[in-house]
Simulated assay, not measured.
Amino acid sequence: MRVSQQGLALIKEHEGLRMDAYLCPAKIWTIGYGHTGGVQRGQRITAGEAERLLLADLQRFEQAVNLGVKVPLTQGQFDALASFAFNVGVGAFRQSTLLRLLNHGDYQGAAKQFDRWVYGGGQVLPGLVNRRADERALFEEAGHAE
């Protein structure tokens, strides 16, 4: 599966567009829509470059969801999981209880796991609370694909 326009919009909304490199809360140089590869202080990009970087980055997270999930998914579920993986990273996604529950067919239990991934630097971050609520809502939107 691939991320839909709805999923892409969710990621863009929560990542935000930054044309100038900045240090994210994890102290990693970031630019565009959450792009971190090879970013340097003082770097500047265009909106078109940010879009291209996002689409290129997204392929890795789509692959992680496609390879990691062993149960049927709706498009909304796939989009929610791709957004989640994009934010937490492939390794954290692969090791998550969310994925383990989902692969055991516990869609409801997996959906509840989104609410646990709201911490940054040991504290609850409002932006992550909002993102996880949106991801969970998208995940639960149309039931599941069984």
Results as ranks from 00 to 15, higher is better:
86 F>H: 01
37 G>H: 05
85 A>C: 09
113 Q>I: 06
86 F>K: 05
128 L>S: 11
104 H>L: 15
134 D>M: 07
73 L>D: 01
143 G>V: 12
126 P>W: 08
116 R>F: 10
46 T>H: 00
20 D>H: 15
9 A>H: 07
113 Q>E: 15
114 F>T: 03
41 R>G: 09
130 N>L: 12
34 G>T: 02
34 G>K: 01
78 F>Y: 12
120 G>F: 04
4 S>R: 01
94 R>C: 12
96 S>A: 14
52 R>L: 12
46 T>A: 06
5 Q>E: 07
124 V>C: 01
111 A>G: 10
33 Y>L: 09
51 E>Q: 14
50 A>I: 09
109 G>Y: 03
75 Q>N: 05
124 V>Y: 00
60 R>V: 14
54 L>V: 09
12 K>E: 07
61 F>C: 05
5 Q>M: 05
117 W>F: 11
136 R>N: 00
112 K>C: 14
33 Y>I: 10
88 V>C: 14
133 A>K: 15
115 D>M: 09
100 R>L: 08
77 Q>T: 02
137 A>N: 08
125 L>C: 08
48 G>A: 10
7 G>R: 00
54 L>D: 09
97 T>Q: 14
29 W>N: 02
146 E>D: 00
90 V>L: 06
37 G>W: 00
66 N>Y: 08
81 L>S: 06
126 P>M: 12
119 Y>C: 06
59 Q>H: 02
51 E>T: 11
133 A>L: 13
17 L>A: 07
25 P>L: 06
45 I>R: 11
93 F>N: 05
100 R>C: 03
145 A>D: 13
133 A>R: 15
130 N>E: 13
129 V>R: 12
103 N>H: 03
133 A>N: 15
18 R>S: 14
116 R>A: 13
118 V>A: 06
102 L>F: 08
16 G>Y: 03
77 Q>F: 00
29 W>F: 07
6 Q>I: 03
14 H>S: 04
3 V>T: 15
75 Q>W: 00
91 G>D: 15
104 H>D: 15
101 L>N: 11
